[in-house]
Nucleic acid binder design. Structure first.
Lengths: 146, 146
DNA sequence: TTCGATGCAAACACTTTGCATTGGC
DNA sequence: GCCAATGCAAAGTGTTTGCATCGAA
């Protein structure tokens, strides 16, 4: 498939190799889709479940590698939960609404936010890479329960 | 002082006590100001430097306590750096510009972002608590170095 | 055949917890 | 005096690394 071919090419460009393990990790992210957030542990378990033996150490190494290649992107969510998601080219920044009580998360887009981020970057002499808004709140169910 | 008096009162309301350690941790955050982000280790070192012996375990316990009381707020920054800042009432949401290369951070405000967050919350039936935009980019110096 | 990648286990950094003791109220 | 809070050290997390072996190119 296209992406994996690109992966092989990109790796070779860095003197690195395309291994079944790397393939499987990236495949998994493609299978679950761009909006999904997976932790290292999630990736490891899902691969085991699919009978693809990959060590946890390799999962960590591969996540770091793919993120450094900008194929994955690390999320910026609260409190020690490192998660990654597919950073496909056609996908634009999306933002998160997180329920402070139950942890439920929703995603949304906003051109306004993008613009505000670009303005701030320009003002401080930064070259914009990405912007993420995290809105904390109480979801309907939790707000009702309080 | 006003804040500590409030602290004592809030703690009593929960059947908890105002100890010198808790006082010192909150004082430290007030001394450095609302815009500063401190890790548990930072707090511990600064207190030691000020001759205030507080164990690291207590620092962690206190940060969690003060955050649960909404006196401190935990930041949502990338990659395993848990940091806290003072959540004073008069302070409005502020956002972060983080250099992906050197980690330098700048802060900024944006009414636009606040509005976008409020819109998104309303649309998904959330009650808004706070919104934080994290913009990743390359600061001037790092962009020039690439 | 070569040298990068893997698996395993040990090492790490950060955070939490059990327990005896201290001290706020 | 009671019971919450502290300090210490031990136990957990999640993540990284050293090293022998494996395998992509």
């Amino acid at each position: 498939m296209a992406v994996s071919g690109g992966l092989r090419h990109d790796l070779h460009g860095r003197g690195q190799r395309l291994t079944p393990q790397r393939q499987r990790v990236l495949d998994l992210f493609e299978r679950v889709g761009a909006g999904h957030h997976l932790s290292a542990e999630d990736v490891h378990l899902q691969l085991l479940r699919a009978d693809a033996r990959v060590s946890l150490a390799t999962v960590y190494r591969t996540l770091r590698l793919l993120a450094s290649m900008a194929l994955l992107r690390e999320l910026e969510l609260p409190e020690g939960s490192r998660r990654f998601e597919l950073a496909s080219a056609e996908q634009h920044d999306h933002h998160h609404l997180v329920c402070a009580a139950c942890g439920r998360t929703e995603e949304f887009d906003s051109a306004q936010v993008l613009q505000a981020g670009a303005d701030a970057a320009a003002k401080h002499g930064f070259r914009l890479l990405s912007s993420r808004l995290t809105v904390r709140g109480l979801c309907g169910a939790c707000a009702a329960a309080v």
